[in-house]
């Protein structure tokens, strides 16, 4: 029997402005995961086509959730590191 322990990865909190910066295209990023790419495009299109004032926050939460759910996957970890670096201005 093989035991596998999921590693904890630090994900910027939802209050970190990086998430809204990404879904509003204020900051640009190169992503490696197809799921993250289609989801980010979905969030950006949703914001363009919506008049809801809460839409940016909602889209940021939805995009961040992808990383919360998939943080242990190798390519997602790389994307997260790129997001963290962008958040820290590196």
């Amino acid at each position: 029997m093989r035991f596998f322990r999921r590693k904890k990865v630090d994900i910027p909190s939802i209050d970190d402005p990086i998430w809204e910066d990404l879904v509003t295209k204020n900051k640009k990023i190169i992503l490696g995961t197809l799921g993250a790419k289609v989801l980010l495009m979905r969030q950006q299109v949703k914001i363009i086509n919506s008049e809801n004032t809460d839409i940016k926050r909602e889209s940021a939460i939805e995009f961040r959730n992808y990383f919360v759910r998939n943080a242990n996957l190798p390519k997602v970890k790389k994307d997260l590191n790129a997001i963290i670096a962008l958040s820290e201005g590196n």
Partner: peptide
């Protein structure tokens, strides 16, 4: 599909 709940969260 892109507007369905949990879109792209799992393959």
């Amino acid at each position: 599909a892109p507007s369905f709940d949990n879109f792209a969260m799992q393959p």
